[in-house]
Design a protein around this nucleic acid. Structure first.
Length: 126
DNA sequence: ATCTTGACTTCGG
DNA sequence: TCCGAAGCCAAGA
């Protein structure tokens, strides 16, 4: 597998039990501007049997994006570590994880972007 | 170099 | 809330 994907796996490996992160979140931490889709690609090729907590990676808004039957497995794994999943989504506000030392290239979102994200979070919580 | 393929995200209706 | 379209990115062929 290529080097870039390795970085994704390294990060995923650090997600603690009971916490989750999103594809875009990973991309941001790695300094990739719009690499969410690429992270998804990496996860699709996720090396099996290596104890990677792949189930802690969710779509924007804490949504479960995987199709059956894998999606069901993911929900089971999440619930098995105390993470509630209702209507196919997890409460990101409470469960989202951020490492202490993110990649230096990771930028803080602009004020406008932050406002927009909040609006989205609000509507999806509805 | 070009095209396809996703475990993606956001916006508009 | 749900759906489709468009934008994006890197790996593979």
């Amino acid at each position: 597998m290529s080097s870039r994907f390795g970085a994704v796996y390294e990060l995923v490996k650090k997600i603690p039990r009971g916490r989750v992160i999103t594809y875009s979140g990973i991309a941001r931490l790695l300094g990739w501007k719009n690499g969410a889709r690429t992270v998804g690609w990496a996860m699709h090729h996720c090396p099996a049997g290596r104890g990677l907590p792949w189930h802690r990676v969710l779509g924007a808004g804490g949504r479960i994006l995987l199709r059956e039957p894998t999606g069901l497995l993911q929900v089971r794994l999440l619930e098995s570590e105390g993470i509630a999943v209702s209507l196919g989504r997890v409460d990101l506000a409470r469960r989202n994880w951020t490492p202490k030392n993110p990649h230096p290239a990771a930028r803080k979102p602009s004020r406008a972007r932050r406002a927009r994200r909040n609006a989205i979070a609000r509507s999806s919580r509805r």
